[in-house]
Amino acid sequence: MATLRDEIYPIRSSDDIVKVRQITREWALMQTFSLVDQTKIVTAASELARNTLEHGHGGEVRIQALQEGSRRGLRLTFVDQGPGIPDLAKALQDGFTTGNGMGLGLSGSKRLVNDFDIHSETGKGTTVMIARWK
């Protein structure tokens, strides 16, 4: 698997969520994703960026443009040093929310992508990796 491009962006404010959406859109276009695929990965990015900001107290996203054979993909890794998620299984259920969301952030994003991986340690932070292939 080859990495065509690899960059890191901060997520510190609500404006950064908009920026992450725009960057993800740009990269998805670069990878010649279909309109639906673009929309799915951008929406997932928006959900996870908001999680990083609200639950992780800010962090960053690493975005990678990938190529494996004739497949092209985008991988986004959201990292925060926030309080972490005590019960991952529960957090991945539909409708689970810690307060102001609809509880679709994690479980919903998972449905929008091909690869999904999450690591969380209480008191240390959370890392969520998603990838979508065209």
Partner: peptide
């Protein structure tokens, strides 16, 4: 838009 609608349904909304 269609792509938005498809995504929202997949998201569970």
């Amino acid at each position: 838009r269609p792509a938005v609608a498809i995504t929202l349904v997949e998201l569970g909304l």
